[in-house]
Amino acid sequence: MNSNHQPATFPAEVDELLTAVARDGFTLRYCNGPHQPTLIVGTYDWGPFVDLVVLRGLDDVISARVPTADITDIFMPEVIVWLYASDARRALQALLDLPHPDHPQAPTKPAPAPPALHVPAARECPVTVRPPSALAARARRVRLGAALLADTTEVPSEIG
C-alpha cells in the first residue's frame, strides 16, 4: 500500500491516474477497506449527473456518467448517458477527459446501465469512504469549467 491509499499491485501509470482522479475531486469508496480492496468505486457529483468509475482490476474498469434523477443506489445505477469500459489506464483517462456536463459535446442521451456497472452487495461491505479535500472537491468543476469557457468563447477574427 502506498501513501495515496491505492492498492500496491497497480503499475505506476495507473496509480498516477487514480491519484489524478482523487485530486480531481472524486469520492473514493474502497470495498473491503483501503488495505485490501476488492474493488474501488469513485464518484463525482455534478448535481444533475454523477461521474462514476468502478475499478475491479487492472483490466476490468468501467467509467460512466449517470443522471442523478435515476440513481437510487450508486452501486446499482439503472441509467447512463456515457460509458467507457476498458483497462484501467484507458478507462481512467477517458473519465478524466470527459467534458463538463454543460459542454455542447457532453453526452446526454440516456441508455440502460449495463450489469457490469453494478456492484454486488457482497462486495459493498465494509466500505471505506474517502471524500476529497475541500480544495479537490472543486478541482474537476473548475478544470472542466475553464475548458468549457475556452471551448465556447468566441475568438475574434483578425482584420486584415
Score class of each variant (00 low, 15 high):
63 S>E: 15
38 T>P: 01
40 I>L: 11
160 G>L: 06
25 G>I: 08
96 L>N: 03
37 P>N: 09
10 F>Y: 08
48 P>N: 07
69 A>C: 03
65 R>Q: 04
60 D>V: 09
37 P>C: 09
128 T>G: 11
115 P>Y: 02
143 R>E: 14
19 T>S: 11
153 T>N: 06
159 I>F: 13
148 L>R: 07
151 D>C: 08
75 F>I: 15
72 T>H: 13
159 I>T: 13
89 R>I: 07
153 T>R: 08
52 L>M: 05
47 G>W: 07
127 V>T: 15
144 L>D: 02
136 A>C: 10
131 P>M: 14
158 E>V: 12
12 A>V: 06
17 L>R: 10
56 R>T: 10
9 T>C: 03
110 P>Q: 07
134 A>H: 13
118 H>Q: 15
19 T>P: 02
99 P>H: 06
61 V>P: 04
96 L>W: 02
64 A>L: 11
153 T>V: 09
29 R>F: 05
95 L>A: 00
124 E>N: 12
88 A>F: 01
97 D>V: 00
107 P>I: 01
22 A>T: 04
112 P>H: 00
56 R>G: 10
92 L>G: 01
74 I>T: 12
100 H>W: 04
20 A>D: 09
68 T>R: 11
126 P>A: 01
56 R>K: 11
11 P>L: 07
116 A>M: 12
19 T>G: 10
99 P>R: 06
126 P>Q: 03
125 C>R: 10
3 S>C: 00
152 T>Q: 05
59 D>R: 08
151 D>Q: 10
